[in-house]
């Protein structure tokens, strides 16, 4: 059993990280009061941007092209997310429809461009990030084997972002204001907070993070852009809800989902797991989320004003 856990652990973490960063992005958007079901599409845009940047810069810059690609995907996806922000904040559009449109535009537009560039619609990158052991720490018994061997640099980057996000949301005036916009925008407005600006910021942070999530998939385990992230954006949304809109809750739920998905992915080759039907493992996160929704329905921690366009005159 220990051997199985140890051998799939690095994969589970690699799978968790893009989920985590994307769900964290969703957290910023939804805490500011804007529902973001466009996470899936934003991940696709991130994956596309990084694939394009890395594949074109790699001959010139070598491995540092990867980091430029990650940065580019954050910036471009943040810009792309402004489409959603504009529709939901300025035009009072139904945020769910706008998010759906975002998903569809992202899926179609990126493949459209990719086909113009490569012909096939797929973009390969020459090399992704390498897995590295963390010096000294990887020698700690048990923990070292699980957490500090064969890790990607992006894993640590994302965990750092998680820490910063937690601090920003709960320990700074900015975080308080952002959360106020999602709970009671009229009160925030009365206190002098620019609700529109905060929501724009929330949505663009979600875009940047989701873009990073898509890019992380590309530079860690996929290595190829193919126009989809296989529902990970929706899984991130599920983790956001399952984690009850809290950073640490999200960390726990994304790891839980990441681990479950990895178990499902490798169950064919691990004899001890092959008895469990793949369907149960794969559908597990979604069923669990449904159950969680029911269990939490009485005391859901969802932001109060989520999905509501800001109406200054409302009380």
């Amino acid at each position: 059993m220990w051997d199985i856990v140890r051998s799939i652990f690095p994969y589970a973490i690699a799978y968790t990280i893009p989920l985590l960063i994307t769900a964290l992005g969703g957290l910023f958007s939804e805490r500011s009061g804007v529902v973001n079901i466009g996470l899936e599409g934003m991940m696709v845009v991130g994956s596309f941007t990084s694939a394009l940047t890395i594949s074109s810069l790699y001959p010139i810059m070598g491995n540092s092209a990867i980091w430029v690609g990650l940065l580019a995907s954050m910036v471009l996806t943040a810009l792309f997310s402004l489409l959603h922000a504009f529709a939901s904040i300025n035009l009072n559009a139904n945020q769910i429809i706008s998010g759906t449109a975002i998903n569809m535009i992202a899926g179609a537009l990126t493949v459209f461009f990719a086909r113009n560039i490569t012909g096939s619609g797929n973009i390969r990158i020459v090399t992704g990030l390498l897995r590295k052991n963390i010096p000294l720490l990887h020698r700690i018994p048990i923990i070292g084997k699980l957490f500090f061997t064969q890790t990607y640099a992006t894993t640590w980057l994302v965990l750092l972002i998680l820490l910063i996000s937690w601090y920003v949301l709960y320990k700074t005036p900015f975080g308080l204001r952002l959360r106020a916009c999602g709970e009671h925008p009229q009160a925030a407005d009365a206190a002098g907070v620019n609700v529109y600006f905060m929501r724009y910021l929330g949505v663009s942070i979600s875009g940047a993070f989701a873009g990073l999530g898509g890019a992380v998939i590309l530079v860690t385990y996929s290595g190829e852009f193919n126009g989809s992230v296989a529902g990970l954006g929706f899984l991130a949304l599920a983790s956001l809800i399952f984690g009850q809109w809290k950073p640490l809750g999200i960390l726990a739920s994304t790891f839980f989902f990441g681990f479950a998905s990895t178990v499902a992915n490798v169950s064919q080759v691990v004899p001890a797991l092959s008895n469990i039907p793949g369907l149960i493992l794969k559908a597990f996160p979604y069923v669990v989320t449904l159950i969680a929704l029911v269990l939490f329905s009485r005391r859901s921690q969802a932001p109060r004003a989520i999905g509501e366009p800001f109406d200054q005159g409302k009380r």
């Binding site: 529709a87 035009l91 559009a93 429809i97 706008s98 449109a101 975002i102 569809m104 535009i105 179609a108």
Partner: peptide
């Protein structure tokens, strides 16, 4: 189609 939805939403 996706653009049309976006414009219909807005």
């Amino acid at each position: 189609i996706a653009t049309i939805i976006y414009f219909a939403a807005t």
